[in-house]
Design a protein around this nucleic acid. Structure first.
Length: 246
DNA sequence: CACCAGGCCGTGC
DNA sequence: GCACGGCATGGT
């Protein structure tokens, strides 16, 4: 259970709800309920979603060997994984994430689903597709609590077609392309590329990671964290974010 | 009641 | 190119 919390509700996805005895989400048109690793190993969709084809054991060894900070981060969160999320959902999710907190992001995500998604099971709505979300007006979005991000969402709906181009682009080009959407800067673009397109070259730099870089890695650039900068980033993110709270 | 939140936009140097 | 304030809203 607790090992799953950091993966499902630690900031990479806003689709999951804590139901007490399990975590639930509507993905791929149906409701999923998981409580431990055994729940998803054998299901083809969840096997892909939880990225079981990737050798995290090997990656952990390489990353932990880089330095003491990463070794501690890996030791603290050995079960961490990068979920393979839907690109569109990731795009809107990380537009919502800017200058926002996880709890509130999840709330807005849920209200968008209830307002524009499909109720696939009583009390459970899918996240709206771009077409479904195109019904929304700016005022409606504002009333759902999106705040100043309302116009960003509308622009993303208009430019949703960009997502089909991303797989064919080099990382830097893909990032630039995403940044042509209003409300998408470097950080959000890198999150979309990581969580929506599973690009492990990504290295999202938010306030937390910026502090880590300044304190522990002065002068170092992203290449230090290769060949999977995204994994290093994710371990460091979970590690230092909880240091403050504990 | 302040202050912050997995930032970005617009403006001004 | 970098620095700055503004931004909607709710959590703590």
């Amino acid at each position: 259970m607790e090992e799953l919390r950091e993966i499902l509700m630690g900031g990479q996805s806003f689709s999951w709800r804590d139901e007490g005895s399990c975590f639930s989400a509507v993905l791929d048109g149906r409701v999923w309920r998981v409580r431990c690793a055994d729940d998803f190993r054998k299901d083809p969709f969840l096997y892909d979603y939880f990225d079981f084809a990737f050798d995290y054991d090997e990656a952990r060894r390489v990353i932990a060997a880089k330095d003491e900070v990463l070794a501690a981060a890996v030791a603290a969160y050995p079960q961490l994984r990068i979920l393979r999320q839907d690109p569109w959902t990731a795009l809107i999710s990380f537009i919502l994430s800017q200058n926002n907190n996880i709890k509130r992001i999840t709330g807005i995500y849920q209200r968008l689903s209830e307002a524009y998604g499909r109720e696939v099971e009583k009390g459970y709505w899918s996240f709206p597709t771009a077409q479904e979300l195109s019904r929304a007006t700016q005022q409606e979005l504002r009333e759902l609590g999106t705040g100043f991000r309302d116009r960003y969402i509308l622009d993303a709906v208009d430019k949703a077609g960009i997502l089909t181009e991303i797989p064919g682009l080099e990382y830097e080009e893909a990032e630039k392309r995403l940044m042509t959407i209003t409300g998408i800067g470097r950080k959000v673009a890198s999150c979309v590329l990581l969580f929506g397109f599973h690009r492990f070259e990504a290295f999202p730099i938010d306030v937390w990671i910026r502090r880590v870089l300044e304190r522990y890695y002065p002068g170092k650039d992203v290449s230090y964290f290769g060949p999977w900068p995204a994994l290093c980033q994710q371990y460091l993110f979970s590690y230092i974010r909880h240091l403050d709270l504990d």
